[in-house]
């Protein structure tokens, strides 16, 4: 057998929840370690093996100059670069600050804003070429395993491109939007999460970003008709993937 592919895990601005999901693979973690070499993974091991790596998993949004440099380095030392989680894909939760002036946001959080040099929060593909996107807040573990297997096979992984509604129907969840009149982002959000939130009686939050044929404008219109005010609608579309043109159209209802 050929040498195991080397994987590196990088962290930008994020909560580390996505890389924690790698360790949460528990029941298959030993199989994963048998198949790949987690060469650089600060959360899990004390020592690191130097690059180059076959696969780089990048977690987090890019929010400052240092991260841009770190990201460019990651791109250089990895054959395949993957955006791990919605922060890396779209800017994610950190990107909610993008709709408030920089100084206002910084002074709200930090005692001494002068020491902060933050930039607009972007997904990593704003700065470097990205080969694959594992969406979600956090990522879906099965999708990660699917991706690793495909990488080993040299194939494109099967990641659901369509709406969360498809999975809700496959699992026969009661539709929170239709049956309970709760505004749900499911119809415009990428599936692959197993419709986790609706299955637990909670509306989809849109954490996985736009599905492949997103009609955000029409959904925003429905939200409005059901009594949501424009600010609420904006927040719904801006929460995880507001930087995408698709969701920005939903936020732009006014």
């Amino acid at each position: 057998m050929t040498a195991k592919p080397k994987i590196a895990v990088y962290k930008m601005s994020s909560c580390a929840g996505c890389q924690l999901e790698i360790l949460n693979l528990e029941h298959v973690l030993l199989d994963v370690i048998n198949a790949v070499d987690l060469s650089y993974f600060v959360m899990a091991r004390r020592d690191s093996e130097p690059g180059p790596y076959q696969i780089g998993l990048v977690e987090g949004a890019v929010t400052c100059g240092e991260e841009i440099e770190k990201l460019k380095q990651a791109r250089k030392e990895c054959e395949t670069l993957v955006a791990l989680g919605s922060c890396a894909c779209y800017g994610g939760l950190p990107s909610i600050k993008n709709w408030t002036p920089q100084r206002v946001v910084e002074s709200r959080v930090y005692e001494n804003p002068a020491a902060i040099h933050s930039t607009t929060a972007y997904g990593i593909d704003y700065y470097v070429a990205v080969d694959a996107y594992l969406k979600g807040c956090p990522i879906n573990k099965e999708e990660l395993v699917e991706f690793i297997k495909s990488a080993l096979l040299g194939a494109k992984p099967y990641l659901r491109p369509h709406s969360v509604c498809v999975e809700c129907k496959l699992y026969e969840n009661v539709c929170v939007a239709v049956s309970e009149d709760i505004p749900c982002m499911g119809p415009v959000t990428t599936a692959g999460c197993g419709a986790l939130c609706p299955a637990n009686h909670k509306a989809c939050d849109g954490c996985r970003g736009p599905a492949d044929d997103t009609n955000a404008k029409s959904l925003a219109q429905t939200f409005k008709e059901h009594g949501l005010n424009p600010g609420d609608i904006k927040r719904k579309f801006h929460k995880f993937a507001g930087m995408t043109p698709e969701f920005d159209k939903g936020a732009d209802i006014l």
């Binding site: 369509h162 709406s163 509604c165 498809v166 809700c168 129907k169 539709c175 499911g186 119809p187 415009v188 599905a211 044929d213 009609n215 404008k217 029409s218 959904l219």
Partner: peptide, 8 residues
């Protein structure tokens, strides 16, 4: 313009 193409 109306349809969400959600597939439901």
């Amino acid at each position: 313009k109306k349809c969400l193409a959600c597939g439901s």
